[in-house]
Design a protein around this nucleic acid. Structure first.
Lengths: 218, 218
DNA sequence: ACCATTATCCATCGGACGTTGGATTAATGG
DNA sequence: CCATTAATCCAACGTCCGATGGATAATGGT
């Protein structure tokens, strides 16, 4: 377990506006490990070794193991929210420009989502593992996933009202699409030939949308 | 942790043809726990308590914890293989009856798969957790999942040769469909309103197949 | 210069884990 | 009726885990 090459924080009183680099190193290492092997299979000493610090330092920065886990979610969610809300706002703005433009905007939103997950397999693994633990850490769903789900749900409702959707209850199909995308990313991370798989999955998603919402003029 | 109500095996030399009821009780309890919380989060003492036996009895019947894990897969796979191979053989037999009958048979195969997973959420959870551990217990994939994948892949190749498929490379879409189905089952197990979700997902699958392989005359 | 504050590591605690040796019980085969 | 054999449990071992108390070092504020 090679220590991560990073400017190690030395002991001493920190500057007030410091961004706590050690905490960042710890969170980066912990996110990678939690995504790779899950909550239970990762030990705090392992995280500490990957970050190049002592286990007590991990505790000092993030508290309990559960708090460390949540901090990892909070960090990846910050990026996720930014990317998806921007795309959703773009799509909402396109709703007034007619059904065709609205459908095209929905296509773009899905593409942004697939791009995001393909570029960050860790995020996918993190969420999938979380969803397989319905009981434990369920508050993470409410805090981080639900707002985005609500955002997309409201967007689709508005799109249906604007006549851009043929599907009356898109909720279930959207969730299925999310799962299919996560599965696609997991398969990519498992070592599939990337270029071909990526192209084919993109075609799959587009054909799926065409079938559900009607074809989009390209 | 209430002990499972079952005819407890008493000590003593067993009859030769006995089906080892204690082993069945242990495997049932272990399968439920592994499906619910995963390999690492389940302790052998927990399995033993759920089965109403001592931890040493668990070891006596299944050996190490990894062997117990594999035994759970072997048991659920026995049912899975039987159901899916039967449906696949039916579909293969329909290939000679023309493209329409072949497509209808593929619809039936997918329905059988969705039915199977909806009736056995444990199987879904077991496999999803396994797929999220690419490194550990990878031999379970080769031993139990790969044969079924190969079966379906050969069936689809034959269907494409028979002109029943419009999709030239159905491999990726089938895997996406598998993931979407597993996600659907996970959502059901998490407490969604069952009847409506089941109906809508079935409609989603059928529309997806229609879009990929051309509509099937019903 | 001095003190308060923060970061870091060392050592250790209690507990849970998987595994194993051995004693006990009871059904079978001769 | 007895020796054999399987099934079960008890107790324990060594290891790893998450968490914590305390010592030390270094910085910022005064």
């Amino acid at each position: 377990m090679a220590a991560m090459t990073m400017p190690r924080r030395r002991p001493g009183r920190p500057r007030r506006d410091e961004t706590r680099p050690t905490r960042e190193v710890v969170l980066t290492a912990a996110t990678a490990l939690f995504a790779e092997r899950g909550f239970d299979a990762v030990g705090l000493r392992e995280v500490a070794a990957a970050a190049g610090v002592d286990v007590a330092t991990v505790a000092h920065h993030t508290g309990t193991k559960a708090a460390l886990y949540e901090a990892c979610f909070a960090r990846v969610f910050a990026v996720e929210r930014e990317v998806l809300t921007a795309a959703a706002e773009r799509a909402r703005a396109a709703l007034d420009a007619g059904p065709d433009a609205a459908r095209r905007a929905l296509h773009d939103l899905v593409d942004v989502f697939v791009d995001f997950l393909e570029d960050r397999p860790e995020t996918t693994a993190l969420w999938l593992r979380r969803w397989l633990e319905p009981q434990r850490h369920a508050e993470l769903d409410q805090r981080y996933a639900e707002p985005l789900y609500r955002l997309v749900a409201e967007l689709l409702t508005a799109a249906a009202a604007a006549g851009a959707l043929a599907e009356p209850t898109p909720h279930i199909t959207v969730r299925s699409l999310v799962w299919a995308t996560h599965g696609h990313v997991v398969a990519l991370a498992a070592g599939a030939p990337n270029a071909r798989e990526r192209r084919e999955f993109r075609a799959f998603v587009h054909r799926l949308l065409d079938g559900l919402y009607g074809p989009v003029a390209s």
